[in-house]
Amino acid sequence: MLHFIIILALAAAFAAIPAFFPWLAFVFTLVLAKGFAALGVAILLRAGLISIGHALFYAVGAYTVGFLSSRAGVNLLIPQLVAAAVVSGLFGLVIGLFMVRYRGIFFAMLNLAVSMVGYTLLSKLYTLTGGTDGLSIATPRVLGMTVGREAFEAILLYGGLGLAFVVGIVVHRYLKSPMGEALPAVESNEIRLEYLGIAVPRVLLFAYVGSAVLAGIGGAIHALIVGHITPDLAYWTTSGQLVLVAVLGGIGGVAGPFIGATFLESVRAAAVIYAPDAWNIIIGAGLLVVIFFLPRGLHGLIERITRKGERP
């Protein structure tokens, strides 16, 4: 209970701050985008699987929106989001059928390899993707209404926050379900799971598709708020950020990746000014610090507080 109250308080702060500092609205919307994607990465991390290629699904979501907006003329927010989720889910299904056979380093590197193929294709398939120039995304209509840019950005921020809440609850329930609880069991003892008659590849495929959908939603929000997308979204540095956000936030609860994203995007806002060339160093050093000193991430801090609160 205390846990939920803390999360609510954080969410309220998250909603209130941009009202006082309007320039943060953009940053916070990006936080949501990265948070969704990192939540997908975190689901796989619970099974001990590290994807260093999930930026591919982020890019698929973004390019679905970009394609609909600039090539197909579908400038409607909800259909764009739904399409991004569906298309990235389909990519996740096809790629996942292959990936769920692998563990550990093979899983990590194969995801990296596939994302690099994806990055190359996004750069080369000019007619479809605009090549390295990328695609521009017009402000879409919302529920049939034409809205101004400022109103749209507010809708995206607060609608995104609402979506994050709903999705967070759905993912939380998933993680507590038999299929979700099986994820850490895959890491700790896959053989025993098989000996319980459970098809581990199916457990993982479901998680993989889910994580791709989440990354796709994140990518779609990214495309909509930034208004322009390039193949860099699929580059391994983006994947690295998503892994860092997930590990930094902590995989103990669904709020973790969003907390991690808030932290990282805030650091980035500062880094752009003070250390633009050292962004990857910051990410890498951050990863090392978290792994060695904060294994449960920032979310682990909340866990510690609530545990103290509940056990006298």
Binding site: I50, A108, I281, I283, G284, L287, I291
Partner: peptide, 12 residues
């Protein structure tokens, strides 16, 4: 994670 972090650091 550790060697990936190293890779990111080296890159910059």
């Amino acid at each position: 994670l550790v060697t990936f972090a190293l890779f990111l650091i080296f890159e910059d």
